[in-house]
Design a protein around this nucleic acid. Structure first.
Lengths: 301, 301
DNA sequence: ATGCTTCCCTGACTATAGTCAGAGAATGCG
DNA sequence: CGCATTCTCTGACTATAGTCAGGGAAGCAT
């Protein structure tokens, strides 16, 4: 563990030194780095100010000022969103798009300057290792937190979840009454909802509810396609189990559709055993159960 | 190439976002980041102000101010160097060392917070990939540039080179008259010296000189042990060959000692062929020659 | 001794990156 | 409708990170 920590530190130093310096040198020459980053983040299509704030992690006042500055430079315009007048949407002008292209070119040059001194074989290996680091850092920065009641992100996930069920079930999918009794009605007495987030975006969610004294049920486990394979499902499930324990649940059940093969694999490897049908969910073909024991390692999936 | 460039960019974004944010959050909480970095750089032993300036790349006035601030906080003291009254040396006080330990602990916590959400297998793979990226970024940031006449770094390298020869040759080593006619007397008419540098430190050097019309000789190739295996030797050799071509050299020769196995391998794989003894160097057992042709890919080793 | 250079320092100034409180418009909720 | 909340914006302020010119002390070359 000690060696791993030291390697992470050495890595951080090496990378921030190299890329931090280059970033300023390449991208910050023409304008403040914050403005350049904002241009990148707005990108080619209109983006809500609130999303920009979440992704860049900026203070509302500061971001507003940056927007005004870019607006004065004629690089972007802001306008109110159609469906919600409070939300403002930023969009690059033609000049802004040109500037973004320029920044992209600089950024490419920066990347090439890193690869150029290396042999083809070294460059290949560096790129492969970078892909691996990026993937795992992404996994590592995904947080799993309890949803606030009425959480918009959780509702978004639920919509996407249902949509995916519809496209994956051969027979199609329409939410039943049982599916409707969710989220809002779960919390806070009868259940808990957790949301996985990556840089401000919701990328997964899941719920646990009590269905009888000492017995709970996992519902609505869903992970966004772009973060599948990063172990988020496993972490989310562990989080739900911890929440279940805190709700004095000793036995957890769940049902699932035969076509959801990743889910089936996850449940099996997480210690869930097949049991006979315990409910009348018309979309379920498999039922599982797990007896919870005190966890030796809280905080780990 | 395009895909590689995009991967490098994605990596840079991901890493600076993650570590940049954490750096500030962990290390910058108690004091300005620049002060924290300076404490790290001074470290446990006395360090000359000029070296701090070089390593951190700071303006002289700004660094001076940072030093005064840390001095006021009782974390370090500065004093004149014994042998050169102009040079000031910074040294942590007892309180400063305590603070450094604290920063180290925070930095460790930061590293652990990256590893914590991952499964043991993921953490293992992340650390391995980070080590690879760090190694190759290090290789990529090594620059190879012509030495200025009387370059102190080149002289340093030469000293270390002779020292290493002494420890590696079974028969020991004392520079002969032929070895003495170097560096200063090479440049700029009869030869060229190149120095490899990593973040301000010289980590290798090599020379080429003309020994007859159209014929040149590689001398004094040396790479610091800590950067061996990164392809620096190959790049340096390619640089020397380019310089030779510019000097209208068509045939390059070199000699080497049988115990320098890495060098032998490098010369062979770079296209040098064994030839009979062409000089009276008492420390040489192998002689090589290469006919230079116009290079198809300048800039690559 | 004299002049040149190196090294570090101070004073004065600027740019960048925020933080915080509060106001005003739009929306959601009962 | 009335009230609370959300979202964005502005004004006022602070902290951080520099840049630049110039000066004094020490060393170096002759």
């Amino acid at each position: 563990m000690r060696a791993e920590v030291l390697q992470v530190r050495a890595f951080s130093r090496a990378v921030t030194r190299r890329f931090g310096a280059l970033d300023e040198q390449y991208l910050g020459r023409r304008r403040p780095l914050a403005e350049a980053r904002l241009l990148f983040e707005v990108g080619m299509h209109a983006t809500a100010v609130r999303n920009l704030r979440a992704r860049l992690g900026l203070d509302s006042g500061f971001l507003s000022r940056l927007l005004r500055s870019l607006e004065r430079q004629g690089l972007l315009v802001t306008e109110s969103a159609r469906d919600d007048g409070r939300i403002r949407v930023a969009r690059l002008t033609r000049a802004g798009r040109r500037e973004l292209h320029h920044l992209n070119a600089l950024s490419d040059a920066l990347a090439r300057s890193v690869l150029a001194p290396l042999s083809p074989e070294q460059a290949r290996r560096l790129v492969a290792a970078m892909a691996e680091v990026e993937r795992l850092l992404c996994a590592s920065s995904i947080t799993i937190t309890p949803a606030q009641p009425g959480d918009q992100d959780a509702a978004d996930c639920r919509r996407q979840y249902f949509q995916e069920l519809g496209s994956r079930f051969p027979e199609g999918f329409r939410p039943t009454a049982a599916h409707a009794l969710t989220l809002r009605r779960l919390e806070p007495r009868a259940g808990r909802v957790f949301v996985a987030r990556l840089a401000g975006d919701a990328v997964g969610f899941g719920a646990v509810r009590r269905i009888a004294p000492g017995m709970g049920e996992i519902k609505h486990m869903w992970i966004a396609p772009r973060v599948r394979g990063l172990g988020v499902g496993r972490r989310l499930l562990a989080e739900l189990e911890r929440a279940a324990r805190r709700m004095r649940v000793r036995v957890l059940r769940l049902d699932t559709h035969a076509s959801l093969t990743e889910a089936l694999g996850l449940y099996r490897s997480a210690g869930y055993r097949k049991i006979p049908r315990y409910n009348d969910n018309p979309y379920a073909q498999h039922w599982f159960e797990k007896v919870l024991v005190a966890s030796a390692r809280p905080g780990r999936g």
